[in-house]
């Protein structure tokens, strides 16, 4: 018995609720999503067992011959191009500055992560108030205010969402960078200083390479967060408006899958989105990860 289960088989018993949870909520649904995407699947009354024939790539073809779906992937591309680099640069700059500060450190740290811990639904309300046609931002800008206004302008809606998410999540990434900065050996800064490197040189020669594992993590998490975008286009731009200019793939999955009853097409969108995230994550890992070895 011990030979099969290890010295303390109780460990398996202790872990079994978690393992069951992962099976039910993650493992099985992932497999199920793939299965749904290759079959003609629709919502049926409880108890009914309709035929769900295998349809090959039909759902994928249906999804990607829909211009709105293609546009939503383009939108998330715009989102990532703005959000991810901005997040990395701002989080690292603020974390570096915060790391050196002595006074008001707690106050600053807490104020940076307050948006992160607050519900997006609540914070979106303020952004709606700030950025609507008659809002504070436009009344400050006066004649410089964009027309049509921010959230109903098809050029600006997606960038505003990208800025909003950058602002909201930044505090979490600052915490990650702060943790990483504690692991950069002080001696490296000292020797860089002796070589006559200024603060800016030190930042690029010591800090940036020193926090590379954290940078990889920030890139990965912000990419996954961006791919999951839903609440913001749903509420901030009233369902991905104007005219789908800020619709995200997850919003399309909701609209096509749940509202219009095509879970099979929605699953196909989900699978393509996951594959896209995996490709981006692979590229990020290739270029940012494991260079020190």
């Amino acid at each position: 018995m011990k030979r099969i289960l290890g010295r303390q088989p109780l460990g398996l018993l202790f872990s079994s609720p978690y393992l069951a949870f992962v099976m039910v909520v993650f493992a099985f649904p992932i497999v199920y999503a793939v299965w749904i995407s290759f079959h003609d699947f629709f919502f049926a009354a409880p108890g009914a067992e309709p035929a769900r024939p295998f349809v090959g790539l039909d759902n994928y073809v249906a999804a990607f011959s829909n211009p709105a779906v293609i546009r939503s992937f383009g939108n998330v591309g715009i989102f990532l191009i703005i959000n991810v680099p901005l997040t990395v640069v701002l989080a690292l700059l603020l974390a570096t500055a915060l790391n050196r500060v002595v006074h008001a450190r707690t106050f600053l740290r807490v104020s940076y992560y307050v948006p992160y811990v607050t519900a997006s639904v609540a914070v979106v309300a303020v952004w709606l108030f700030l950025f609507n046609g008659n809002g504070l931002v436009n009344s400050l800008l006066g004649p410089l205010a964009p027309d049509p206004s921010w959230l109903i302008n098809d050029k600006l809606a997606m960038p505003i969402i990208a800025l909003y998410v950058t602002w909201k999540q930044l505090g979490f990434y600052i915490l990650l960078y702060l943790a990483a900065l504690q692991n950069v050996p002080k001696e490296l800064y000292e020797s860089a200083e002796m070589d006559g490197g200024g603060k800016i040189r030190q930042f690029f020669a010591v800090t940036v390479p020193g926090v590379r594992p954290a940078t990889l993590l920030v890139l990965l998490i912000s990419t996954v967060t961006g791919a999951n975008l839903f609440t913001e286009p749903y509420l901030l731009t009233a369902g991905g408006g104007p005219n789908g200019a800020s619709a995200s793939p997850v919003l399309m999955m909701y609209q096509l899958g749940i509202q219009q009853g095509q879970p099979d097409v929605a699953s196909a969108i989900g699978i393509v989105l996951v594959l896209g995230v995996l490709v981006i994550a692979f590229i990020q890992n290739r270029f940012v990860g494991e260079r020190e070895s």
């Binding site: 749904i36 996954v224 879970p263």
Partner: peptide, 30 residues
Amino acid sequence: LEWRGRKATFALVLLVQVIPFQLLQIPLYV
């Protein structure tokens, strides 16, 4: 504790963190 499957279970805990949860919305809803 030392038990068989400990390493695999820990790998699973790490893996679950990077699964984009909202992408599971359709199968979970069904």
